[in-house]
Amino acid sequence: MIRAKTYVDLNGREFVVDDLDADERRLLQNIRRQAQRGPDWNAFDNNWLPQVAEFYRRRGLRRRQTIETAIFQIAQDLSSRLGIDQGKTRRADYRDELADLIQARFKSQGEFCKATGLSTDMLSHVLARRKHLGIDTLQSALERIGFTLRIVPRTKAAKRNGTHASSPRPS
């Protein structure tokens, strides 16, 4: 079986590169080459965004539609990898996801704790990165609010002190 070429981002989302048309693949290849040269994080962002914006503007896409394209998302991911390489940002972990979930769906940490059965003290320590939740505890808490854990493929970590963005697999 021939497996389609895919790009897996830092959050495990998979983009099928083979689904892109020829012009999109050319644009993506160009952006990936730029990232592989290991430019300054800000310089890379200044470079790819206007290219992608103009490319899809010519195709009549609205900005929200452009954001949702695979190329926009992959370019954002390449940017993230550069920022991580350069020590200016970091990969998110489950505590960041918990914080985002609380912010998006609950009025307060207290309300989240009431819904999940977690203690406010424990949650405070977890979000402050002083403690971890056990997997069983986390799974059980999430199930009470209609969420679950899942295992996703981890892409190569960004190289520390490296000059190149990590190569997504396989390309």
Binding site: D45, L49, I67, Q76, S80, G87, K88, T89, R91, D96
Partner: peptide, 21 residues
């Protein structure tokens, strides 16, 4: 601590959607 990368993505997308970049 450093922000997780997703926060920068959120800001970039917000600025792009509202103001085009």
């Amino acid at each position: 601590k450093l922000h997780p990368e997703r926060k920068w993505r959120w800001l970039n997308e917000g600025l792009f959607e509202l103001f085009g970049g």
